[in-house]
Amino acid sequence: MNPTAGKGRAAYAGEGVLAGLRRAGHDAVDLSGPDADAALAWARAAVDGTGGPADPVDALVVVGGDGMVHLGAQAVAGTDVPLGIVPVGTGNDFAATLGLPVRDPAAAGAALCRALDAGAAGIRRVDAALVTGPGLAAGTSAGTSVGAAASTAAGPRWVAGAVSAGLDAAVNARANRLRHPRGSARYTVAAAIELVRYRPWSYRLTFDGVAPATSDAGAGLRLRPGPAGTATWTGRAALVTAANGPQIGGGIRVAPSASLDDGLLDVLVATDLSKAGALAVFPSMFTGGHVRRRKVHVVRARAVTIEPGPEAWVAGERPLPVAHADGERLGGLPLRVEARARALQVLVEAR
């Protein structure tokens, strides 16, 4: 559990979840550590069967927000151990996409027990994104009040929701630094600050496994064919987001058509918006209406490499935002984001 998530609700909720699991006859062990590094190390050891307070486990449960989902994914993605989620954080976007009870730990705990009791019927296999690149951070700052600060060793990172590398990443970083206001309003305040400073950045995007467009959403983004079936785009953009799921930031519908089980990323690219254009687009992102705007495009692909564009090094250019995922800091560009089909098992009540 992340004791800082949901304004401190997660610690209290976590104790209730532990008690409920034990009353239901499960052998529940608290793997929370003194910091995120220790918690992740214990979780990985328990999942891998290499020691720790619990060895091995049949499921890993996280109590918190999207940052705790991110931490849990580092331990269980690519394994046969399912992830249970009790969403009591600020955003809870991944849990909301799965249809889990949000900010209701009693209901979420009861649903978790029913999913465990259902066996294979209570497990849903969904996609996850695997991120690689030389700029990946060794971890995030432990103990922050926004996100779980899911620290990992520098290397591949699993992502449940979306990788943000544009204005949304800058807003995420700003929100993580703000201390007031509390809750989801912090993201709105951070967005207002970053929109005042905004200018579009220069990018180069290389797509692998581009799927046919199902609408006109990505038709205006002129892709140049490359070797081995790749396609590239170079230009200025306000938003570059590689989404596995449809929403980020506590309900922002960044990629409203994204699916958790299609083996593809929905890569949103909002090209060279003016400051006024960016100000106009932001409110419509809460409903997903931004994808109907002329300069907003969605490319569905198996993978995308996000790099600084040729103008990123010109004197006077603002540095590109540090990429974020699931509310957590990933690191600087270049990064490659690849959809891994059915790489993550989640506990979801059978319906």
Results as ranks from 00 to 15, higher is better:
Leu178Asn: 04
Phe207Trp: 04
Arg125Tyr: 08
Val171Asp: 06
Arg174Val: 03
Ala160Gly: 12
Leu130Asn: 08
Leu112Thr: 06
Asp208Cys: 12
Leu195Phe: 03
Ser141Asp: 14
Ala107Gln: 09
Ala175Ile: 06
Arg114Thr: 09
Val126Ala: 08
Ala154Gln: 13
Asn92Ala: 04
Ala162His: 05
Gly135Tyr: 08
Ala185Cys: 01
Ile193Asp: 15
Pro156Cys: 13
Ile85Asn: 05
Asp216Trp: 13
Val159Lys: 03
Ala165Arg: 06
Val88Ser: 03
Gly91Trp: 00
Thr97Phe: 13
Val163Cys: 06
Ser141Glu: 15
Ala213Pro: 03
Asp208Lys: 10
Arg179Lys: 14
Ala170His: 11
Cys113Val: 15
Ala219Phe: 08
Gly155Gln: 09
Ala137Arg: 15
Ala170Val: 00
Thr144Lys: 15
Thr140Asn: 12
Thr144Ile: 15
Ala165Lys: 05
Thr152Phe: 07
Asp117Phe: 00
Ala169Val: 01
Gly166Met: 00
Asp93Ile: 02
Gly135Ser: 09
Gly143Thr: 11
Gly166Gln: 02
Gly91Tyr: 01
Ala95Tyr: 09
Gly135Met: 02
Ile85Leu: 13
Leu130Ser: 12
Ala120Cys: 01
Arg179Met: 11
Phe207Thr: 03
Ala165Glu: 07
Ala137Gln: 14
Val76Asn: 01
Val88Gly: 02
Arg199Leu: 04
